[in-house]
């Protein structure tokens, strides 16, 4: 179709195509530039970087920033907390969400309509952060690792996404399984689960990214430093001086031989916090489109 059209394409359309390529290429560059800048800074000798002038390539290559960061117990601890909450939180949440969505897909079941309204309304209005915090206090969740996992088990948006996908699955399979004596759990895990991999991967990704990137609960709901996730450690290092002081051995940094500075370490921290997500998402990319598309169809 395009081949034979080329010759006839008017000049203004050809120019538009070229402009289009140029614009998209520059968009990619604009997105990548800050990343490359931070990457270069993180691999540059800290003292040298403080002289300024580093753009997209390290002037004096060094990995000592990363070595210093990994010597820091708060970073290791933060990494452990983040991994725990990401893995456990995501797994439990996806399971529970699938089960609830499985029940919610039966519109004719008594009470399901009301339950759906009950859930959807929470997307429109909420009590705000302070009463929420008081609820955490009421259930003694603050200052425990569960404060990351339990309050994020369900999200109305994910529930709707999965429910809509389930509704698109041919119900005759469920019916025939039931005639064979299967109960609901078996139907869910043997029939719906395998068929719903696209949408389940998408909510896995959503949950995983949310857990990995959440700095807020760690900053406001937790005071025990042993429970601080990586992003909160990062946020406090970036914004709060005192936290940085506590987390770094100032003496090691101040010593004459050290080439690491607090700034160069921060850059390394930023890169460390990005790498896992940035290396995983391209592989799940093909599922996004399918999964997200389902969510946009009205449920």
């Amino acid at each position: 179709m395009d081949q034979h059209a080329v010759g006839k394409t008017p000049l203004n359309e050809r120019i538009a195509t070229i402009v289009n390529y140029i614009l998209l290429a520059s968009l990619s560059i604009i997105i990548l530039l800050p990343l490359v800048n931070i990457l270069a800074l993180s691999f540059n000798d800290g003292k040298d970087a403080s002289l300024g002038g580093i753009a997209f390539w390290p002037r004096i290559f060094s990995v000592s920033n990363y070595i210093e960061v990994f010597k820091n117990p708060a970073v290791i601890n933060g990494l452990e907390v983040t991994l725990f909450r990401t893995i456990v939180g995501t797994a439990v949440s996806v399971l529970l969400t699938a089960m609830a969505a499985f029940a919610l897909k039966n519109r004719n079941l008594p009470g399901v309509g009301i339950a759906s309204m009950f859930i959807v309304f929470t997307m429109l209005f909420n009590g705000g952060i302070i009463p929420f915090f008081m609820v955490l206090k009421m259930f003694h969740l603050n200052n425990t690792i569960w404060v990351y996992i339990i309050p994020t088990l369900y999200s109305a948006w994910n529930l709707i996404l999965v429910r809509t996908f389930f509704q698109s699955i041919d119900p005759s399979m469920e019916e025939s399984a039931k005639i064979d004596g299967a109960h609901d759990f078996q139907v869910l895990f043997r029939i719906y689960f395998p068929l719903s991999m696209p949408v389940l991967s998408v909510i896995c990704l959503f949950n995983g990214v949310m857990h990995w990137n959440d700095w807020f609960s760690g900053a406001f709901y937790v005071t025990d430093e042993k429970l601080r996730p990586l992003q909160t450690v990062l946020q406090q290092m970036l914004t709060a001086a005192e936290a940085m002081r506590k987390n770094l051995s100032m003496n090691a940094m101040m010593s004459a031989s050290s080439t690491v500075t607090s700034e160069s370490m921060k850059m390394a921290m930023v890169i460390i916090s990005i790498v896992p997500i940035a290396s995983i998402y391209p592989f799940i990319q093909k599922y996004f489109v399918q999964g997200i598309m389902v969510g946009s169809v009205k449920g």
Binding site: L238, T239, A241, E242, M244, R245, M250, M254, T261, E263
Partner: peptide
Amino acid sequence: MDGVRAEEAYN
């Protein structure tokens, strides 16, 4: 400016 950077600078 954060405290660590400031202290480094004064050092």
